[in-house]
Write a protein that binds this DNA or RNA. Structure first.
Lengths: 190, 190
DNA sequence: CACAAACCATACGCAACCGTATGGAGCTGG
DNA sequence: CCAGCTCCATACGGTTGCGTATGGTTTGTG
């Protein structure tokens, strides 16, 4: 008599699955939740799977930051710069893009604030965030310059600060990103 | 209430010394840095001292949050409400208070962002932060109402969001809080 | 000085996690 | 069908941290 083999029909995991799980953990539990064994439990697998796809935990973190950088950069180039919009129109387009939260499988609306919190625990992340900040500020400043604002640098800083703050408030008090940013833009470009 | 000076004696520690060390660790290393033995090493003592002053690590965290709540509340009441200022004048007074960073012994300018990052790892902290957000928003809204703003709720949200964002940017790109907030106020109350 | 209280050092058991080693399951081409 | 590659499970040693237990050292006080 043969015992029928358990057809677990398990779906095999890809590195991308682990990265997505990493972002979900980061958003829900913060940096301390980025551990191999808890992640494995959350995916219903063992860490043997993890160490097949990644050299170590640091490798996963690197890939997470790299993915965020790629998406954030894409948000700027393909959606705004490539559209050919300028000045106020470009800012409007950016508002539309920013108010769309990332997919829930990758942590949803909490990704950006969570990543900034993560930056406080790991210098590599802090460096990536700081670089993205300057990049975004430069782009915003060019838009405000095109819109003939008196002090584009100040306006860019304020607009960006409001964006970051609204992302925070979206989590705690459920603020509406789009409405908030449109009002901010009206205040800065009357 | 004013923050008392720390014991420079170094031979004996007070609970307040541990709380301050906790804030410094939180700012520098984030939530995962809030551990008993690393804190003890940083203070040049052993964890035997810690467990004399606190029941466990959770007790220290509770006291840290409590201290932050008291100082944040004080920032509102004694500096603004008690001054009798109203409307725009009250907002100006608040700007002056906010742009002053806490003492370096307690983590300096990074305390507020660090605490918001911490909130992502511990629900108790998240609750305290959310409560403070609503409290601050209510106060700000009353000021904008006194200043006869068209949409006080929106203005309060934006002003607060800009404040939070500028606190973030103060860390990465070294933004000037006071200048930024004054410009924001001018934009919202022309 | 005596002596208690306050404060700190050290050692211990326990638990969680990291990264490695190794074997097994499952698909795939020859 | 079987040989080899891909992918996962599990056991292991090492490290770090928690909280407790216990004894030592300093400080205040009569």
């Amino acid at each position: 008599m043969t015992i029928p083999a358990l057809q677990t029909d398990r779906t095999r995991l890809t590195p991308r699955d682990w990265i997505a799980a990493g972002f979900r953990a980061l958003v829900n539990g913060g940096a301390p939740a980025l551990r191999v064994e808890p992640l494995a439990r959350g995916l219903g697998t063992s860490k043997g799977s993890f160490y097949w796809h990644f050299a170590d935990l640091a490798a996963l973190k690197v890939q997470m930051v790299a993915l965020w950088q790629r998406l954030a950069e894409e948000e700027i180039t393909t959606t705004v710069l490539a559209s050919g919009a300028e000045g106020r129109a470009a800012l409007q387009a950016l508002i539309g893009r920013i108010s769309v939260a990332p997919p829930a499988a990758y942590g949803g609306a909490g990704v950006e604030p969570a990543l900034r919190g993560w930056a406080r625990t790991e210098p590599k992340v802090a460096q990536a965030v700081a670089a993205m900040d300057t990049r975004r500020l430069a782009v915003l400043e060019s838009f405000f310059t095109q819109a003939r604002h008196d002090d584009p640098a100040h306006a860019a800083r304020l607009f960006y600060a409001a964006t970051l703050g609204l992302m925070e408030l979206r989590l705690t008090t459920g603020a509406d990103m789009r409405a908030g940013l449109e009002v901010q833009l009206d205040a800065l470009l009357p």
